[in-house]
Simulated scan of single mutants.
Amino acid sequence: MRTVLNDDLHVHYGQCYVHSEGGDPFQGRRTACFAGQRNGLCGAATAGTLYLITGLHTGNVGFRVEVHDTEPPDQGAEDVVEVSFRVEGASRLVTWGGESSWDLDLAPGDYRVRYAGTAMDAGHTRDTRPAGEPERDHYLLQFWPAPPAPDAIVRRTSAIAEYWHDVARKLPPPPG
């Protein structure tokens, strides 16, 4: 296992992203990223993009990114989803507006991605985390090589995750 990031990550509008070269340019269209999915936390419907939702609206969330050779064990987070992601070129974790980014150093190919959130409702209730305030919600993003498969909701416990799952389920399927 390789850890790419284990630190605070600044979010705006409860969002951050993963971009891979070779995919469709990301235009910030949440609906396109979640179209046809069951889960509303990790949008993978737009090639080359993962659109990640957090409970906290603005401020720092705890964030860890791991790359594995095989499927890692489930860490038991409160809200867990999985999606497939194809890497064709350089991939980066990017904050809203591109203020910060981290190279994921993923080899080209197909990956399964697990996105897990803990205390999402606490983050959502707080809304904004000023500097120096204790962490409310935190997230784990894991990648491992795997063939493409439909997105899945592994576990859901928070009201804000259920809200976003419901939003995604109501979107029309992607065109074409």
Rank of each mutant, 00 (worst) to 15 (best):
Val61Pro: 04
Ala47Thr: 13
Val80Leu: 03
Asp8His: 10
Ala47Asn: 10
Arg38Leu: 13
Arg38Trp: 09
Gly36Thr: 03
Pro173Ser: 04
Ala122Trp: 11
Ser84Asp: 04
Asp151His: 05
Thr46Lys: 02
Arg129Glu: 14
Lys170Asn: 12
Asn39Ser: 14
Pro175Gln: 00
Tyr115Lys: 05
Ala122Arg: 11
Tyr13Glu: 01
Ala159Ser: 14
Pro134Val: 06
Ala47Met: 06
Ser84Glu: 02
Ala44Ser: 15
Ser158Arg: 11
Tyr51Ile: 00
Ala168Tyr: 02
Leu141Met: 05
Gly98Asn: 05
His68Ser: 10
Pro147Ala: 12
Arg114Gln: 10
Ser20Ile: 04
Phe63Ser: 07
Ser101Pro: 05
Pro175Met: 00
Arg156Met: 12
Arg92Ile: 08
Arg112Trp: 02
Ala149Asn: 08
Arg64Asp: 12
Asn6Pro: 04
Val83His: 02
Arg126Pro: 10
Asp74Trp: 07
His10Lys: 13
Gly23Phe: 07
Ala45Ile: 00
Ala45Phe: 00
His57Gly: 10
Leu41Pro: 07
Arg112Cys: 11
Tyr115Leu: 03
Gly14Glu: 07
Ala47Phe: 07
Arg38Thr: 11
Gly55Met: 15
Val154Met: 06
Pro150Arg: 13
Arg29Asp: 14
Glu88Trp: 04
Tyr111Ala: 01
Tyr111Pro: 03
Ser91Phe: 08
Thr46Trp: 01
Val67Arg: 04
Asn60Cys: 12
Gly176Glu: 05
Gln75Asp: 13
Gln27Lys: 11
Gly43Ala: 02
Gly176Asn: 06
Gln142Leu: 00
Val81Ile: 09
Ile153Thr: 08
Trp96Val: 14
Thr31Ser: 10
Thr70Tyr: 06
Met120Trp: 06
Arg156Tyr: 09
Val167Phe: 13
Gly62Asp: 14
Asp110His: 10
His68Leu: 06
Pro174Ser: 00
Asn6Asp: 15
Ala161Ile: 04
Ala77Lys: 07
His124Tyr: 14
Asp79Trp: 09
Ala32Cys: 01
Val87Lys: 03
Ile160Asn: 06
Phe34Met: 03
Thr49Arg: 05
Ala119Glu: 15
Ala107Ile: 02
Ala149Ile: 09
Gln27Ser: 11
Thr3Tyr: 12
Thr58Tyr: 07
Asp137Pro: 10
Tyr139Cys: 00
Ala168Ile: 04
Val113Pro: 03
Lys170Tyr: 01
Arg155Ser: 14
Met1Phe: 07
Ser158Leu: 08
Gly23Lys: 08
Asp69Thr: 12
His68Asp: 08
Val113Phe: 10
Arg30Asn: 07
Ile53Tyr: 14
Thr46Glu: 07
Thr54Pro: 08
Val18Leu: 05
Ser158Gln: 08
Met120Phe: 05
Gln15Gly: 09
Asn6Phe: 11
Gly43Arg: 00
Gly43Ser: 02
Glu133Asp: 14
Val18Glu: 04
Gly23Pro: 08
Pro130Val: 15
Cys42Ala: 13
Pro134Asn: 03
Asp103Arg: 11
Tyr111Val: 01
Leu41Asp: 06
Phe34Lys: 03
Arg155Val: 05
Gln15Met: 12
Ala116Pro: 15
Tyr139Ile: 02
Val80Gln: 06
Leu56Pro: 10
Ala146Phe: 04
Leu9Ser: 08
Tyr139Glu: 00
Glu133Phe: 09
Ala146Gly: 12
Ala107Phe: 01
Trp102Lys: 09
Thr118Leu: 14
Arg30Phe: 01
Val18Gln: 04
Thr49Trp: 03
